[in-house]
Amino acid sequence: MKNNNNESTPYANDDFKVKVGLAEMLKGGTIMDVTNAEQAKIAEDAGACAVMALERIPSDIRRDGGVARMSDPDMIQQIKDTVSIPVMAKCRIGHFAEAQIIQALEVDFIDESEVLTPADEANHIYKHDFKVPFVCGATNLGEALRRIGEGAAMIRTKGEAGSGNIVEAVRHMRALQNEMQRLTTLGREQLMSVAKDMGAPYDLVCYVAEHGELPVPNFSAGGIATPADAALVRQLGAQAVFVGSGIFKSEDPAARAVAIVKATTHFDDATVLLEVSRGLQPGMKGLEMSEIPEEERLAARGW
């Protein structure tokens, strides 16, 4: 097998391309949080392009408190055995041992996630060391490029997980898009200064300035509760959506899951959006951001 691996720019090598390749295949789709095999089956039947296996969905983690860790491997295994679509699982920020265990389980994607309690306050995982691709959250361009620099093959702009409130997802998607747009207007001589201010790898800053987009797919996660929410973040530039508490905390998970899948596909067709928004049972109640104390906000975790 030919391998164009080059240590100095690991994101140009074949291993990294194969990781980004899977992220490309998930575009235009809906990735759903599931806590058991039964929910995973509902998600797959509704048209989810992948499932995220986790022990407690974010709104329950928020309610219960305590330390949130990687899920029980047996639970992840049961979900893997039930569905044919890719299965993702979360590890704590910086917890590379959890990531090693999840990789040994042959999960298809690892989410180094702020929804779990961070294990390292200074360092994220060096993700190029892994064969399984990683997705990481970001609230702005600098954070996204740092994660890509460490080897993330997909970025998800962070909303506030478990809130049922789309406002943070919109804030961060707009921030990222605006910063990328701004970079395309700058001269070559300004980019090193941008890299310094953002704390982002210089070569990745140059890539964004040239292409106007990230070198890996960019999805949206956190706070998506309705078909309209999915359509909103898609129109703002999200290439796919993650839905957590929004589905299995609603009163009609199966119907809502199908509606969100269709809204993600037909995100710019208001006729379809109207049709799929009709007849749904009430969604999750949701939280106003002022109800969530600053220190309990998940999107602020990681840097």
């Binding site: 998930l26 039947d45 048209g47 392009c49 992948a50 044919s84 679509i85 899948v261 269709k262």
Partner: peptide, 14 residues
């Protein structure tokens, strides 16, 4: 195109 065949098949039917 490539993607998830279950998802594409379901949406094709719908």
């Amino acid at each position: 195109p490539g993607g998830e065949s279950t998802t594409i098949s379901l949406l094709m039917q719908e």
